[in-house]
Computed example of a mutant assay.
Amino acid sequence: MTGLSMPLRPVVFGEVLYDMFPDGTEVLGGAPFNVAWHLQGLGLAPLFVSRVGHDRLGDRILHAMDEWGMDTSAVFQDPDHPTGQVRVSLENGQPDFDIVPDVAYDHVMPGMVKNLYDHRAYGPLYHGSLIGRMPDSAQTLSLLRQSAPSIFMDINLRAPWWNKAQLDELLQGINWIKMNDNELATLSGCQIDNNESVEQTTRGMLENYAWQAAIVTRGSEGAMLLTPEQTRLIAPVEVGRLVDTVGAGDGFSAVWLAGLLRDWSDEVKLQRAVEFASAICSLRGATNQDVEFYRHYRYLWTL
């Protein structure tokens, strides 16, 4: 939408959790939650749909969302399952991630959202692949996908919580998809080692699934956007001070959604998404509580 009209509110469905480190550090995250956080910071007022436990961590999540001004009306509390956790351990100096199963976000029930899209203020649906790992939330995801006017799927393959048959079903009927080159290689079974192989493999999938656009992020190689009409390649934006790359892809997705809602051209969406993802790499962690960080982009992009 343009002019003075208000954009539709994006709906973000998926996991919210805490990364639990051996030293006792607890870090709030989950890719869909990170996307919703950025969208809120950018002034897009997302509706985040998930579930947390009736426990200490669940209360902390709701408090953090309140403090950030996020709508908590679709984050349901579960008296029977705990808030999501990822247990991080170190083995030979390398981190190992155990995504705890059967947690609150695995049990978002279809009845909780069955009339959500009757409210015309809601627009594109964002989701990943982890939220469909267990039957309750998988059924809810299916219901939301049937109701949403458009769908942006961000592939986040987390072993052992996916299989090719289920993923193939999710890849159908969506409008936009984002994945990194490693995920592209896993999905396609092809070797991905240069831009030519990325383009060739992705274009085959684009035509097979009839997506409007496919985005492949390539880290230090930048990102590639493919539509039925063209291919665009953009180099990464130089990071002044690289802190870590955690959550850069989630920042990219948030800005792509913002561009969809504001009718930016594909070229502008791609450029701004890469720029924002690079800025995230200069911060510690996946999200940022600095209002000025987001205000800069809201002003720059007239959000």
Rank of each mutant, 00 (worst) to 15 (best):
T25I: 05
G247I: 00
S89G: 13
R56Q: 12
A165K: 08
G3P: 06
H107K: 08
V11T: 07
W301T: 07
G30Y: 04
L4D: 08
E275H: 07
F21V: 01
L42S: 02
Y117E: 09
D136H: 01
D59N: 03
G58M: 03
S265I: 11
H296E: 11
T140W: 11
V255A: 00
L257F: 14
V274Q: 00
Q85K: 13
D290K: 14
F152E: 13
G3N: 02
W161D: 03
T217V: 05
E196Y: 13
A74M: 13
L90W: 11
E267V: 14
V86I: 13
P135E: 15
P124L: 14
R298A: 12
L47S: 08
E15C: 03
L170R: 03
L42I: 02
M65Q: 03
P46I: 00
D23S: 08
W301K: 09
Y18K: 02
Q271N: 14
G219N: 05
R203I: 05
P160W: 09
V12Q: 00
S50H: 03
R272N: 08
M205F: 09
M65H: 05
H107R: 06
T186S: 06
E91L: 12
S89M: 15
L28Q: 09
G84M: 06
L42K: 02
V268M: 10
Q230K: 14
L270C: 02
S89K: 11
L39A: 02
L157R: 00
G259N: 09
V35M: 05
F276P: 01
D66F: 09
W161H: 00
L184D: 00
G14P: 04
P236C: 04
F252C: 06
